[in-house]
Simulated assay, not measured.
Amino acid sequence: MRLLVGVDETEQSAAALRWAVALARDVQHTAQRRDGLTPPAVQVVVAQAWMYPALPLMANSGGAAEAESMDAKVLLSLRHFAERILESADPTALSMLDFVALRGKATAALIQYAEARHVDLIVLGTRRLDAVERRFPGSVGRTITEQAHCDVVIVPIGSEARRGPIVVGVDSSEDSRLLETRAAQLAPSLSRDGVVLVHCSNYGSLVPSNAGLPIAFAEISGDLSSRVSETLGSGLRAHGIHYRTVLTVGDPGRGLCNVADNERARFLMVGTHSESTLKRMLFGGVGSYVTGHAHVPVMVVR
């Protein structure tokens, strides 16, 4: 398993590094407990991009040497950053880290490296954005989430120590089957509390077209919750993963964030592909919403 942590030596990238190291440790420990054999190799690549040519001097004949010198400085700075972040939490984790200096814009450099090196998961940190900042696209996290060919995790500051269940936003689509399969792969290593499947509906979709009003909302939601429990979770049941379902009504993004908060989720998992209206609600705009608003890490699954 190969993780790529994009850092810029800020507080949010420190959160991403701590989260990635904790995930790598949990994967290794779980495998070792199961069979007593040597745990699987989990590589955590810590990368920082810098613009090349960043200095006019690098455009001259001595540019290659200057670029190599800058690479060396970036690598040294990355190692010092990792040592400072992990010295109190997990100093031995440095042995599982590789450091890479990437040349170019951060978004393109990280995506290209991830594709070339067959990275399984890109991990990025984020700070809490205010209402104005959320309206402007173009952040590194948003761009990589939209364009990367592998899964991406966005880690808000202060959320990296959570150890609750994996919360998964689902509907009845094939994309939800993919999310269930991914959750089943990760749950044994990353969640003692199993998986929470969250189905989000708006109120109108719960009311039958021939229903007279007033109608008992509790009766409708209870019936739908039962049907959701019956139809979802096959991918988890096949792997013997403990799970439960939660039905929320209203805005799907807010619903997922609220459930993740209430459950103190280790992370919230959403998909990216969509065709139907419901799938667009859940996996299109909702994915963008939760990465900007969730208080827990968000994994966007490809």
Rank of each mutant, 00 (worst) to 15 (best):
M1G: 10
R2Q: 15
R2P: 03
L3S: 09
V7M: 03
E11Y: 01
E11K: 13
A14L: 03
A14V: 05
R18N: 03
A22M: 03
L23Y: 11
A24P: 02
Q28F: 02
T30F: 06
T30Q: 09
A31L: 04
R34N: 08
Q43N: 08
V44E: 11
V44Y: 06
V45F: 08
A47N: 05
Q48N: 13
A49L: 04
M51I: 15
G63N: 08
G63C: 09
A65L: 12
A67N: 01
E68N: 11
E68T: 03
D71S: 12
K73F: 06
S77A: 15
H80K: 14
A82S: 15
R84W: 06
A93R: 05
L94R: 01
S95F: 02
D98G: 08
G104T: 13
A106F: 04
T107R: 13
T107D: 13
T107K: 13
A109L: 02
L110H: 02
L110S: 04
Y113K: 11
H118A: 13
D130H: 13
V132I: 12
R134E: 12
R134K: 15
I144S: 00
V152W: 06
V155T: 12
A161S: 15
V167D: 11
V168D: 09
V168C: 06
D171M: 07
S172P: 00
E174I: 01
D175E: 14
L178M: 09
E180L: 07
R182D: 03
R182L: 06
P188V: 06
S191R: 04
V195Y: 08
V195M: 08
L197W: 08
L197H: 02
V198Q: 02
V198C: 10
H199D: 15
V207N: 05
A211E: 12
A211C: 05
G212Q: 14
I215W: 09
A216R: 14
F217P: 00
F217K: 07
S221I: 08
G222I: 04
S225G: 10
S225P: 00
T231H: 14
G233N: 03
H242Q: 11
T245Y: 10
T245N: 12
R254G: 10
G255E: 06
L256Y: 05
L256I: 11
N258Y: 05
V259A: 09
N262I: 02
E263I: 05
R264D: 15
R266A: 13
L268V: 06
G271S: 09
G271L: 10
T272K: 14
T272H: 06
S274M: 04
T277Y: 00
T277M: 02
K279D: 15
M281Q: 10
M281D: 04
M281R: 10
F283P: 01
G284K: 01
G292Y: 07
H293Q: 12
V296E: 14
M299V: 15
V301N: 01
R302Y: 03
R302E: 05
R302N: 03
